[in-house]
Simulated assay, not measured.
Amino acid sequence: MLPNLWGLCSHDHSPTVLHNSSQHMNISVSIADKSCYISAVYAHTNYVQGRNLWYDLNAQIIANDGPWTCIGDFNVVLGANEARGPRVPHALPSTEFKTFTDCSKLIHLATRGSLFTWSNRRSGVALTEKRLDKSLCFTKCGPSMRIVKVVENIWNRPCYGCPMYILTQKLKNRKKELKLWNKNVFGNIHLNVKTAMAELELIQNSKTIMPSQDWRDQENLAQNKLMIALDVEESFWK
């Protein structure tokens, strides 16, 4: 039987296969003298088999400390927002997948292009589309760690005077720098979410009144924009 997953990598990155199964392959690579980990995923369509995959991936992430990327066909959606068709996706597989990504502290990376990566290639009311291909990552260098670095840099700046004056100045500098950091990294995150939701709602209403491929394409772009805004908002609260 031919393998269903193939891995190609430059020898310069010293690739090492850590674990493999019929649903995934985990490798470690060396980048800038640091170990990074990659999981190529092709999940089973049966969600019961998917449970074994979530367990294996979580165990590997725990056992190998460092940046992780999980890329591939996960054959599951996070919720109804990642599917379109005559039937609502089953809740249990979505819940189990979300539990796995939350427990593994994996971030769903935003993608470009069409929101849905799979379809049954039918037309009209029989058409079903889903977002099954995803890219997830785990890194200690997320927004929460970057803000720690910002605060450390501010606090370590030299300041002279009496202890109370030094403390007051450091607190003022921290407030100023954090405001600037928040604006540069996140912008007005809550406003961005509301704007993206309003744009999507307007397009969906227009598509209902005047169905066309153009409105459908615009809806895909608007949904992708909303997902990006929601991911940024989620990162802000972590």
Results as ranks from 00 to 15, higher is better:
K183F: 11
E129W: 00
Y37C: 07
K134A: 04
I189S: 11
D12H: 04
S123R: 15
A91N: 05
N46V: 14
C103K: 10
V125W: 09
C162F: 08
M227G: 12
R87V: 08
S39N: 03
Y160M: 12
T69C: 13
M227I: 04
S22V: 12
S22Q: 12
G66M: 00
S28M: 06
L136A: 05
H13A: 09
L200G: 07
M164K: 14
H190Q: 10
E201S: 06
R87W: 09
A198Y: 10
S144P: 01
S144A: 12
V185D: 04
S235G: 13
K207F: 10
A80V: 03
R122W: 00
F236K: 09
N156T: 14
A43Y: 10
R174L: 15
P143W: 05
K170G: 03
V150H: 13
P143M: 02
I189V: 15
V125E: 05
P3E: 13
L5Q: 05
H24M: 11
I209Q: 13
A229V: 00
L115C: 10
R174Q: 15
N75A: 09
N188C: 07
N64E: 02
D214V: 15
D12Y: 04
G7L: 15
R146M: 08
Q49H: 14
Y47V: 01
C70S: 12
K34R: 14
S119Q: 06
R87C: 05
K207Q: 14
N182A: 05
R51N: 08
M164A: 15
R174T: 15
R174W: 11
